[in-house]
Simulated scan of single mutants.
Amino acid sequence: MFELSRRERLWLYRRRFLSKSGVVYDFDTYDPSLYLDDFQRYVRTGRINDHWGALIDNKLAFHEILGKFPSHRSTVHGLLRDGWFHAFDSSDNTVVASDGGIELERPTDPDVSRPTRDPIDWFDETLSDGEQLVLKWFSGGGGNNVHFLERRDGSYLYDGGQMTDTELARTLADLQDYLVCEFVEQGEYAAELYPDTTNTIRALTMYDEHAQEAFIPIAVQRIGTSDSAPVDNFSRGGLCAKVDRETGALSAGAQYYHSDSVVWHDTHPETGARIEGTKVPGWDEIRTRLLEIANELSYMPYVGWDIVVTGDGEFKIIEGNSQTGVASLQVHRPLLADERTRRFYRRHDVV
């Protein structure tokens, strides 16, 4: 994918960067030592949250942790496993294991009165016409293993393609340990950026033990494209714009997919929607509340939050990431150029 010379690859290798970093990062402007390198990102940042990292990356476990923040937690309806839908309700028999795994006590009789149901029956009873659900594997990120189910005119659309009940049942049987989640409706601001994906903000929080407070070193607005759809991920062709931490104003959007360099867009290349200068509505309230949540979860000092802006100052948390990707962050500026951020990574033996 990345057409780099042998000399360029060797230069990157000696500085512990992968080929992708040679395309995304601006080594002409910034010294390579100011960037969190790929060895530090892939090997060392995974240690920061210790055993709590497994619970962050387990989407079901993290959903339970967010139970104390109900106004910002999206709904998880249940789990697909072994061809059955396991509903989460008062009689829920789901256990989140201490290592971040999932254990289920599965009833032997899939009677409809029990939490274990035929998934098509549950979808038929639950989904109204025009409504959607998100199906995502309980672990992993990067927009992988995410599917969208919509009911339209009495039929089902799976990732935009129509399926019969038989085809859908066969497809769902292959989805092992997939969560059935609420489709969070984004607010007007996010929809105007690009209407065909849910456009999330990735905000990184770090807990400063010296100051005893969380801070946001960087946040970016991810924006989908026809390449990335149905998700908004930078790694799959989406754009990302830096959110000014004080004002909430967006920078130009960066994009590198199928390119040998980063391309910057003041407006969306497909819709023409303005990106640079557009402000996240109610950013002060969003930032303040997210930091309050991060402070309450101070035992998880390093979290990459994926949030959907649903209104002015309002948001819902889609998931957290314990070993968050940094390409979409450092395309804007190297993380280690900020002294407070460098101190955090140094404190946790990353740099």
Results as ranks from 00 to 15, higher is better:
residue 179 L to R: 09
residue 152 R to E: 11
residue 180 V to L: 00
residue 173 A to M: 15
residue 160 G to A: 04
residue 172 L to H: 14
residue 185 E to A: 14
residue 154 G to R: 05
residue 179 L to M: 09
residue 163 M to K: 12
residue 159 D to F: 01
residue 171 T to G: 07
residue 165 D to C: 03
residue 183 F to E: 01
residue 169 A to N: 04
residue 184 V to F: 03
residue 175 L to R: 04
residue 184 V to R: 01
residue 183 F to C: 12
residue 171 T to L: 11
residue 166 T to N: 09
residue 157 L to D: 08
residue 185 E to T: 08
residue 189 Y to Q: 03
residue 182 E to M: 09
residue 171 T to M: 15
residue 166 T to R: 04
residue 184 V to N: 05
residue 153 D to F: 07
residue 178 Y to K: 08
residue 173 A to F: 15
residue 165 D to P: 03
residue 182 E to H: 00
residue 156 Y to E: 09
residue 158 Y to P: 02
residue 159 D to V: 05
residue 169 A to F: 05
residue 155 S to W: 12
residue 187 G to R: 08
residue 189 Y to F: 15
residue 158 Y to N: 01
residue 187 G to F: 08
residue 178 Y to D: 08
residue 183 F to Y: 14
residue 157 L to Q: 06
residue 181 C to E: 07
residue 173 A to V: 00
residue 170 R to S: 14
residue 185 E to R: 13
residue 174 D to Q: 15
residue 171 T to A: 14
residue 183 F to R: 14
residue 186 Q to A: 09
residue 187 G to P: 07
residue 170 R to M: 10
residue 175 L to Q: 12
residue 177 D to P: 10
residue 164 T to W: 11
residue 166 T to W: 03
residue 169 A to E: 02
residue 179 L to Q: 10
residue 189 Y to W: 15
residue 183 F to Q: 05
residue 174 D to Y: 12
residue 172 L to C: 02
residue 167 E to V: 05
residue 159 D to R: 00
residue 184 V to L: 08
residue 154 G to W: 08
residue 172 L to A: 02
residue 152 R to D: 07
residue 172 L to Y: 03
residue 184 V to I: 10
residue 157 L to K: 03
residue 168 L to C: 03
residue 157 L to A: 08
residue 175 L to P: 09
residue 153 D to E: 12
residue 178 Y to H: 12
residue 158 Y to T: 01
residue 180 V to H: 02
residue 165 D to Q: 10
residue 154 G to H: 09
residue 170 R to T: 14
residue 166 T to S: 04
residue 154 G to N: 06
residue 179 L to W: 02
residue 186 Q to W: 00
residue 156 Y to Q: 04
residue 182 E to K: 00
residue 173 A to G: 15
residue 153 D to V: 05
residue 169 A to P: 01
residue 189 Y to E: 13
residue 170 R to P: 12
residue 178 Y to Q: 06
residue 162 Q to D: 06
residue 182 E to G: 00
residue 189 Y to N: 12
residue 162 Q to A: 13
residue 157 L to S: 07
residue 188 E to Y: 05
residue 187 G to D: 06
residue 162 Q to F: 01
residue 156 Y to V: 01
residue 169 A to Q: 10
residue 168 L to S: 04
residue 157 L to F: 04
residue 156 Y to T: 08
residue 181 C to A: 07
residue 182 E to D: 08
residue 165 D to M: 14
residue 166 T to C: 03
residue 180 V to Y: 00
residue 179 L to K: 09
residue 187 G to N: 11
residue 173 A to Q: 15
residue 167 E to A: 03
residue 186 Q to Y: 12
residue 162 Q to L: 10
residue 165 D to A: 10
residue 176 Q to G: 11
residue 179 L to I: 08
residue 154 G to C: 07
residue 152 R to G: 10
residue 173 A to L: 15
residue 155 S to T: 13
residue 183 F to N: 10
residue 166 T to A: 06
residue 161 G to Y: 15
residue 160 G to H: 01
residue 175 L to G: 07
residue 152 R to S: 14
residue 172 L to E: 06
residue 156 Y to S: 00
residue 186 Q to L: 13
residue 169 A to W: 01
residue 164 T to L: 05
residue 171 T to V: 14
residue 154 G to P: 02
residue 172 L to W: 12
residue 184 V to P: 04
residue 163 M to E: 07
residue 180 V to S: 00
